[in-house]
Design a protein around this nucleic acid. Structure first.
Lengths: 142, 142
DNA sequence: CAGCGGTAGTTGAGGTTGTCAACTGTTGCC
DNA sequence: GGCAACAGTTGACAACCTCAACTACCGCTG
């Protein structure tokens, strides 16, 4: 029954292992979001925003692969916590530029640090494996 | 500004690249769920269930990292589509065993195949890179 | 065997996410 | 000026998710 695992193509087996890794990281994401008083979608939204460069809400909607009307509510939440501000755009009064506040940038930074923490299974690899893994992923995604 | 990217520890850079890969796979997951008439949580639930071995709902809740009451509604949906059945447990009448129906197993199988399809960036790697990647991930997660 | 603590699952309240359709205000172009 | 297109909001509606309260059941212990 389990013997056919051996016959999987290498890339497919690798992808399966990666899927498992990500599934196992889900609780951590939920925990981090909770620690910062954010819901997961709010966390993704804040992570997506760049404190150094305001973007219109439309851009955030595209980045999150969701409807604009959804972003309205999401930003409402972030704005209510003082993490983000809606600012009028210079040359187009239809747009509202999303500006990450100072407090928002601080939260985002700590949040990023928590999310970027290397998962145990990868951290346990040898230095050489870590470097090789990085090199391969650079070739794939760089 | 971007120069500090080079100074990232290999494992952390690798993890960052993997995070990006998974984020990019999100649309595919949403599409697959839609194609089978499932919502993403329902997809995860069905994927989690083993057609060969019924489990109590409690086990599914733990596997999904969510509350039991949530699973009630999730299973309601799957059951309404004839993909899953609630069956009484043999020796403990508190439990309801979740049984994947024949139709459920068929859907689950096609769904798994779609999700297991190797993402483009990994598929584009050389055969050697693919094998090396698999070997490293086996060491990390095997 | 009666009772008691603990467990499995459901229900209902309340808040968030997400989509779609309809709407307002604005822009760019003919 | 007029008009199609765009940005964002609103409202309706469905789903998700948690918590607290509840029912039914188990197992143990006195």
């Amino acid at each position: 029954m389990a013997s056919d695992v051996k016959s999987l193509p290498p890339a497919q087996e690798a992808w399966g292992l990666l899927s498992r890794l990500f599934w196992e990281m889900r609780p951590r994401m939920l925990r981090v979001a909770g620690e910062f008083g954010l819901t997961p979608p709010q966390l993704f939204a804040l992570r997506q925003l760049d404190p150094a460069q305001p973007v219109p809400m439309r851009a955030l909607a595209q980045a999150l692969h969701c409807d604009s009307s959804n972003v309205t509510g999401l930003v409402d939440g972030l704005e209510a916590q003082g993490l983000v501000e809606r600012r009028e755009a210079e040359h187009d009064r239809r747009m509202r530029m999303l500006v990450v506040t100072e407090r928002g940038a601080a939260v985002r930074s700590r949040l990023q640090a928590a999310m970027q923490e290397v998962p145990e299974p990868l951290a346990a690899l040898s230095s050489e494996d870590q470097r090789t893994l990085r090199d391969i992923l650079r070739r794939a995604l760089g």
